[in-house]
């Protein structure tokens, strides 16, 4: 079984999925990530799915689970690089990926984690973890 490598950049974990994962590989990634978050005390996880040409309900569920696990472990997960065709298909499939934060690319994903970390540390007394829409109403 192939394994997806997990890279460490500062206190952020970066996962770039480059292969068509079997369900076992996806589950293994989920476990690896949980362990690595605790191991290095990561506060953010960026999952790059630019190379994935489909996301089915199994992978969708894996992403949701990773987001939930990392939240429990005090780390924020951002899924980046979803292709338009994949996003359209997910909407049609009925998968909303609730609770997952998304960004267009790795760079923006890293910024998103940094920004929400700042909020956590109290630089900004405004609402924690603002959605774009919420930020507008509070402005």
């Amino acid at each position: 079984m192939e394994r997806v490598p997990v890279l460490k950049i500062g206190d952020i974990l970066l996962v770039s999925i480059q292969i068509d994962m079997s369900d076992q590989t996806a589950l293994a990634l989920q476990e690896d990530l949980a362990e690595r978050i605790v191991e290095i005390g990561a506060h953010g996880v960026v999952i790059d799915i630019t190379a994935l040409d489909i996301v089915d309900s199994f992978v969708g569920r894996m992403l949701s689970t990773i987001a939930s696990i990392s939240k429990v472990l005090d780390a924020e997960t951002v899924v980046v690089g979803m292709r338009p065709a994949v996003a359209i298909t997910l909407v049609e499939l009925g998968l909303s990926l609730n609770g997952i934060r998304t960004a267009l690319n790795v760079e923006r994903g890293m910024k998103l984690i940094a920004a929400s970390r700042e909020n956590d540390l109290g630089h900004d007394e405004e609402v924690k973890d603002p959605e774009p829409g919420q930020a507008a109403t509070s402005a």
Binding site: D53, I54, D56, R83, P84, A85, I88, T89, L93
Partner: peptide, 13 residues
């Protein structure tokens, strides 16, 4: 491309 993606996703399920 969108139809390919939809079909492959359905096939996967």
């Amino acid at each position: 491309l969108v139809d390919q993606t939809k079909l492959v996703t359905a096939a996967s399920e």
